[in-house]
């Protein structure tokens, strides 16, 4: 799954714009990934500040 490093985030909304299941909630200076993430990673790719990261997979 992916997570957002808020210290890097600019709250620009580009991750929200590409999110297929529409599960990123962005308020003025507050962002969270809601339930329903499909792990498609589009938000990881497009983030201008590389503020969205993938969790290491644990076996």
């Amino acid at each position: 799954m992916v997570y957002i490093i808020e210290d890097k985030c600019d709250y620009c909304g580009i991750c929200v714009s590409v999110c297929p299941p529409n599960v990123i909630e962005l308020k003025e200076n507050n962002i969270k990934i809601l339930e329903g993430c499909t792990d498609c990673k589009l938000c990881v790719y497009v983030c201008p500040y590389k503020a969205v990261k993938e969790n290491e997979r644990r076996i």
Binding site: S17, V18, P20
Partner: peptide, 26 residues
């Protein structure tokens, strides 16, 4: 509600932008 629009999607219109159509900017 801008590039990050959710209003359409709450109403069943798929407004999410395809990777090929988004420009990521600073």
């Amino acid at each position: 509600d801008g590039v990050e629009s959710r209003v359409g999607r709450w109403c069943g219109i798929k407004t999410n932008i395809k990777l090929r159509d988004i420009e990521t900017c600073v």
